[in-house]
Write a protein that binds this DNA or RNA. Structure first.
Lengths: 339, 339
DNA sequence: CTGAAAGCGCTTACAG
DNA sequence: CTGAAAGCGCTTACAG
């Protein structure tokens, strides 16, 4: 089966390329091309399964009908789920998506943004490393359509779809308190991410509002790079004298898993000795011993909303910053807090 | 920052577009362009961060430096991990990847393959629905570079990277046997997939080699569409009289989770009443009560090898079928089989 | 109603 | 050593 081109169709049907192109782009009527000609073309194209070369089309049209999705790590189930939604939603608009992982590296992120722009994506959805203000600012200045998800730059006004991180941890902390816990620890990554900062703030302020003091020793901030080894030490310190925490809020699903492993290794009973709550969850958290109480993020809504906002931006030409969504989060109570 | 084009550089540097293009494509030397001119151009391009429009470049070159990845579901952690590897590996070759999920629909898969071809991807990695022989055959006929992963068409000779499904289940079944189980059930999806068929075969033949009979009633094949409700019924039947299985092999990670939930709902103790093994695993399987003995798939190797094979094909022009890899699988023994 | 022609931004064979 | 020109496969303003 030889590849079929526009000119082949024109040739075989004895019409011009213009006519074929117009008809195939649904502009037959507005260009008053006879129904008969239209049908011949449509029929022929369908029968031979003609599809235009998207590179040529994109070059000519100045758009690629592709959007780019940049996430820290596509193999993180949270982002994988979002990617899945983004893909589905984009398809509704007839768009494809190119994805890439930044691996939390600002340099990689920068490179990815540029590569995608060179590939002429029409819009970008970014879960940023949040250390790449320059490029985000530039995107904004050049009125390129983009929306930030999961992570945003508080100092740059952009469209975004986030989650109420503060509220999530507040819910979790209160839940722990209501279950009688008074020495509540907090384990997270380094708070260079605004999302993490909000979670930390949620933790601290909730403790205070409950009349508890957020002790320095209760809080463990691990480096992204070294958190695997650091976790062991962190958990050990949290559950040993003089700290001896009776509950821990983990700021991310994989920290929860790692932390739980360490707690077990130290012979601690969850929830008896230490209750735990996880921000975000994993597929099998309900099967874990004990089932892990988790803060659920609406990943479907994040993905869908992001795409919708992006398409509004792309349509508007004039980019307006009027899509700043902070979605609600939900505390799913299972057994890891003792009730 | 206005977008910079090739002609702008040529203009500003008082040389032709040809010269600029040649230099930027590292063909300066072979075209004997003076070192000085080369340096001026390189310097200028770097300083202004010039990157060619990939659509134009692709159209001109007849290739896009993009590969396509089609999987059943990008939000399945198994495929997400493979996608992550594929992305990393492709980047080493300077390639991007476009991904899409077929959602196990042959029609969608067909459409995706065509869309990707129209987008001029230079090669395809496909975890097929295995119900789309026509397109795969066509890809093959037209000598388009592609490699199948995870699932293949036994009736079509293609390059592929698979996993030893038979062996995996054999290992699992023997392990169960060695732990004293004699009534071993098998829960899987409908065996329209060759991979599933191999797993089923592994189960049956191993039982036989062990002197056990693979009873019809021990085997549950669920429909992809209805497996959520069907699982409840299947598990109930397996653990009730007259069947009363004392072990179950699940042919996929999410079936394991679902099955375990049902076992618990019925008050069954795992592994005392029913031992279980999972083909493929999830992140928290080691934390589950009990930790789930699983057959591990080398997703990293699958992704890397697939990309390597694909690039060899792409380079060779003449596509040769000499990359048929069946990777080893590993049984990770935890506690769900009683030892 | 329809076609010839220019243009999208590149690459490269060819000529000098 | 370097440039003018053709070509990749489309779209569409313009002319008739």
């Amino acid at each position: 089966m030889k590849k079929l081109y526009l000119k082949d169709i024109a040739h075989q049907l004895n019409v011009s390329k213009t006519t074929v192109s117009l008809v195939l782009n649904n502009k037959g009527d507005e260009n008053k091309i006879s129904k008969e000609t239209q049908n011949r073309i449509l029929e022929f194209a369908r029968k031979h399964n003609y599809k235009p070369n998207q590179l040529a089309r994109g070059l000519s049209l100045g758009k690629s009908e592709t959007i780019g999705l940049i996430v820290p790590d596509i193999s993180d189930i949270f982002y994988a789920r979002i990617a899945s939604c983004v893909e589905k939603k984009a398809k509704e608009f007839g768009y494809n998506v190119v994805f890439s992982s930044s691996n939390e590296s600002p340099e990689t992120e920068q490179e990815l943004i540029r590569t995608m722009l060179n590939r002429q994506v029409d819009g970008l959805i970014i879960a940023s490393t949040q250390q790449n203000a320059a490029d985000i600012e530039q995107l904004k200045q050049s009125s390129f359509p983009f929306v930030l998800i999961d992570r945003h730059y508080p100092e740059i006004e952009t469209n975004y779809v986030l989650v109420d991180n503060y509220k999530g941890v507040k819910l979790a902390t209160e839940h722990l308190y209501n279950n009688g816990r008074r020495c509540i620890g907090f384990v997270s990554l380094h708070p260079q991410l605004e999302a993490i900062r909000q979670r930390l703030r949620g933790y601290k302020e909730t403790l205070e509002s409950l009349g508890l003091k957020p002790e320095k020793a209760f809080i463990k901030e691990l480096d992204k790079e070294t958190h695997k080894t650091a976790m062991k030490k962190a958990i050990f310190e949290l559950v040993s004298k003089p700290v001896s925490v009776d509950a821990i809020v983990f700021s991310t699903h994989y920290l929860t898993s790692m932390g739980l492993r360490e707690l077990r290794a130290l012979g601690k009973n969850v929830p008896k000795d230490v209750a735990i709550v996880s921000f975000d969850e994993m597929s099998a958290f309900d099967l874990v011993d004990p089932p892990i109480t988790s803060i659920l993020q609406p990943f479907n809504d994040i993905g869908n909303l992001a795409v919708e906002c992006l398409f509004k931006e792309m349509k508007n030409k004039m980019v307006k910053i009027d899509h700043q969504h902070i979605l609600e989060v939900e505390l799913l109570i299972r057994k890891s807090c003792g009730s």
